[in-house]
C-alpha cells in the first residue's frame, strides 16, 4: 500500500465499524470517546487496512481515466480493450502485446497479522511505510503452483513512534480457488 499520510477520521471509522457489524460506541460516539480513558474514540483493530483510501493510485479502486477491470458493457472492460488492441496489432502486423490479464487465476489475501503498539485514536494522522518481505512457492492441494509474497506496513503517529505494524501475505493462484 502506498498511502503515505493516513488521517484517521471519525466518519470513516464509523463507516468501517458499521461494515464489520460492530456497534460499539467507542468507535462512533465522540462523547463516549471523550469520557473514556483514551480521551477519544478508537478505531477497530483491523481499521488500518482502510489506509487504501488514501493511496492515490490504489489499483483496486476505479479511477477516472483508468480502465477498470470489472464489468461495464462487457464482463471485463479491461480485458475487452486488451483483446481489441491485440486484434488490431495482429491486423497491422505488429507483435501482439504479452497477455496481461490472465483471466481465470487470481491474487488472494492469505494471511494478515497486526501488532498493536498502542490504541489507535480517531483524529490522529498516521504516516505509512510499506516494504516487501519474503516470497515463497508451494504446490496447491488441487494442483497448480501457489506464489506467496509478504509485505510489512508500519503505521506511525505524529511523534514518529509505531502505532500498528501490519504483515500481509498474498497468494497468486494459477486457477480460481475452489471452495475447501
Amino acid at each position: 500500500m502506498a498511502a503515505e499520510r493516513f488521517p484517521v477520521e471519525s466518519s470513516h471509522v464509523l463507516m468501517f465499524a458499521r461494515a464489520i457489524g460492530d456497534e460499539n460506541p467507542i468507535y462512533a460516539d465522540p462523547e463516549v470517546g471523550a469520557k473514556s480513558t483514551f480521551g477519544a474514540c478508537l478505531a477497530p483493530p483491523t481499521f488500518v487496512q482502510a489506509s487504501a483510501q488514501f493511496d492515490p493510485t490504489y489499483p483496486l479502486r476505479p479511477r477516472p481515466g483508468v480502465t477498470w477491470f470489472g464489468s461495464g458493457a462487457t464482463p471485463s472492460v479491461a480485458m475487452t480493450e486488451a483483446a481489441e488492441r491485440a486484434k488490431e496489432a495482429e491486423a497491422t502486423g505488429e507483435a501482439a502485446p504479452s497477455s496481461g490479464g490472465g483471466g481465470r487465476g487470481s491474487g488472494l489475501h492469505a494471511e494478515q497479522h497486526f501488532t498493536y503498539h498502542r490504541p489507535l485514536l480517531v483524529g490522529e494522522v498516521l504516516t505509512v511505510s510499506t516494504r516487501a518481505g519474503e516470497t515463497w512457492e508451494k504446490q496447491g492441494r488441487k494442483g497448480g503452483l501457489l506464489r506467496f509474497s509478504e509485505s510489512i506496513t508500519e503505521y506511525r503517529g505524529a511523534d514518529g513512534s509505531l502505532v500498528v505494524t501490519a504483515r500481509a501475505v498474498g497468494v497468486l493462484t494459477a486457477q480460481p480457488v475452489k471452495e475447501a
Partner: peptide, 24 residues
C-alpha cells in the same frame, strides 16, 4: 458496504458478472 469502507473494490467481491463470467 465493506468495500466502500475499506476502499478495496476488487470486482471479485463487488461485481457478480466479473466474478462468475471472467474470474470463474
Amino acid at each position: 458496504q465493506y468495500a466502500g469502507a475499506s476502499g478495496d473494490y476488487n470486482p471479485i467481491h463487488t461485481d457478480e458478472v466479473f466474478a462468475t463470467q471472467v474470474a470463474g
